[in-house]
C-alpha cells in the first residue's frame, strides 16, 4: 500500500512520518513513533484513554486519521512534564491517589489540561462533564475530581 508522508509537530518537536491512509493518529503515535504513553482502550472514541491535544483541542487520537495531523501541533502525555518537573496536574493526580491501575491516567491528565486551559476555575459539575469522555474503572472518579480541583487551585496560585 502506498504510504503518505506527513509533517507535524509533537510536543513542540517537528516530526515526520510515513503512514497508510487508513491509519489512525493513535496507531502512528504508538506503533510508528513509539510514543506509547497515549493508551488504547477501545479505538472507537468511547473511553478517552487516547486523549491528546490537537492545536490545543481535546481529541481522541483513535478518531483522527494520522494523515489529518499534518501541519498541526499535537500534545501528548509525554509533553506535559518539563525540565522543572511534573506538570501540576500530574503532581496532583499523584498526591490525591487519583490513579489505581493507571491505564486511563494519561488520557485523563491530557483531558484535564484541556479543561483547565479553558476554564481555570471550574466547578465540580463542569469538571465531571468535561471528563465524562474518559472512562476510569478503578477509582469511581472521586479522587480524580479532587485532584483536578486541587490542580486548578495550584495553577491559579503557583507556590
Amino acid at each position: 500500500m502506498d504510504k503518505i508522508q506527513i509533517g507535524t509537530s509533537i510536543n513542540g518537536e517537528a516530526v515526520e512520518f510515513l503512514c497508510e491512509p487508513q491509519q489512525s493518529l493513535l496507531e502512528v503515535l504508538r506503533d510508528t513513533l513509539g510514543r506509547t504513553g497515549t493508551k488504547e482502550g477501545c479505538s472507537t472514541g468511547d473511553c478517552g484513554a487516547c486523549s491528546v491535544l490537537m492545536d490545543g483541542r481535546l481529541v481522541c487520537a483513535c478518531l483522527v486519521l494520522a494523515a489529518e495531523a499534518g501541519g498541526h501541533e499535537i500534545t501528548t502525555i509525554e509533553g506535559l512534564a518539563t525540565d522543572a518537573g511534573l506538570h501540576p496536574i500530574q503532581q496532583k493526580f499523584l498526591e490525591h491517589a487519583a490513579l489505581q491501575c493507571g491505564i486511563c491516567t494519561p488520557g485523563l491528565i491530557v483531558a484535564t489540561k484541556a479543561l483547565l486551559d479553558r476554564h481555570p476555575d471550574p466547578d465540580e459539575t463542569t469538571i465531571r462533564y468535561w471528563l465524562a469522555g474518559n472512562l476510569c474503572r478503578c477509582t469511581g472518579y472521586d479522587k480524580i475530581i479532587r485532584a483536578v480541583q486541587d490542580a486548578a487551585r495550584s495553577l491559579a496560585h503557583p507556590a
Partner: peptide, 23 residues
C-alpha cells in the same frame, strides 16, 4: 499514612509499560 506511590511518576508521564506498550 498515604504517601505517593513508588511507581507513580511513570504512570502519570506515560512511561509505564502496559501489555500493549512493548515492541
Amino acid at each position: 499514612t498515604s504517601p505517593v506511590r513508588p511507581d507513580g511518576v511513570d504512570k502519570v508521564t506515560g512511561r509505564a509499560q502496559y501489555g500493549a506498550d512493548l515492541n
